[in-house]
C-alpha cells in the first residue's frame, strides 16, 4: 500500500461519518451526501496535494464537498430553466428521510429550498461569516441575508420554536464547538 492509499484509508476510517453527515446537511439526501463525499475525495486526491495527515485531508475534502455541491446547485439551476423535468428525478427515499420525518429540526431543514439549506449549513454549521457565504455561493450579501432570514422563519414555523431570536443573536459561540 503506497502512502496515498494509506492516507485515503486513514481518512475514511477517521472521518467518513463526519463527512457523510456534512454531505447530508448540504444535499438533504444520505445517498447524495455519500456520493458527494466520494466525488470530493477523488477531486482532492487526484491533485496530489501534499497532505500531511488525515486531518488535513479531511479539511480539503470538506472544502471540495462545498465547492462541488455549489457547482451542482448552479448547474441544476441552469438545467431547471431549460429542462425542468430532468432535475431531481431518480432520487430514492433513504434513511435520512425517516430521520427528517421524526425530528422537528430536521423537518425544518428539509423544508428549505436547496439554496436556503446551503446558506444555513455554510452560515450556521461551517460558521462562515455572511460575506464568506455570499462569496462561496456567488451571491450578494443581501441575498444571503434574505435566504437566511427566510430559512430561519420557515424552520421556526416547522419547529414551533423561535429559532430566529436565538440564532440571530448568537448563532454559535465558538467555545461551544465540540
Amino acid at each position: 500500500m503506497n502512502a496515498d492509499d494509506a492516507l485515503l484509508t486513514d481518512l475514511l476510517e477517521r472521518a467518513s461519518g463526519r463527512l457523510a453527515a456534512y454531505g447530508y446537511l448540504l444535499t438533504g439526501s444520505q445517498h447524495a451526501g455519500e456520493d458527494l463525499v466520494q466525488d470530493a475525495i477523488v477531486k482532492v486526491f487526484v491533485r496530489r496535494r501534499r497532505l500531511p495527515n488525515a486531518a488535513a485531508a479531511e479539511g480539503y475534502v470538506r472544502a471540495a464537498m462545498r465547492t462541488l455541491h455549489l457547482d451542482r446547485l448552479r448547474r441544476e439551476a441552469r438545467w431547471r430553466r431549460v429542462a425542468p423535468g430532468l432535475v431531481g428525478a431518480g432520487e430514492l427515499p433513504d434513511h435520512a428521510d425517516a430521520v427528517a420525518a421524526s425530528d422537528a429540526v430536521a423537518r425544518g431543514l428539509a423544508s428549505l429550498s436547496p439554496r436556503q439549506r446551503t446558506a444555513v449549513v455554510l452560515r450556521y454549521f461551517d460558521d462562515l461569516p455572511v460575506a464568506d457565504v455570499a462569496h462561496e455561493m456567488r451571491l450578494a450579501t443581501g441575498t444571503v441575508k434574505r435566504y437566511l432570514s427566510e430559512a430561519l422563519d420557515r424552520m421556526a414555523s416547522v419547529v414551533g420554536t423561535d429559532i430566529e431570536i436565538d440564532e440571530r443573536a448568537d448563532v454559535v459561540a465558538k467555545g461551544e464547538r465540540p
Partner: peptide, 12 residues
C-alpha cells in the same frame, strides 16, 4: 437552541 450543534446532530 444552538443551531450548529443541532445541525451536527441531524447530520449524524
Amino acid at each position: 437552541m444552538n443551531l450548529h450543534e443541532e445541525l451536527g446532530r441531524i447530520g449524524a
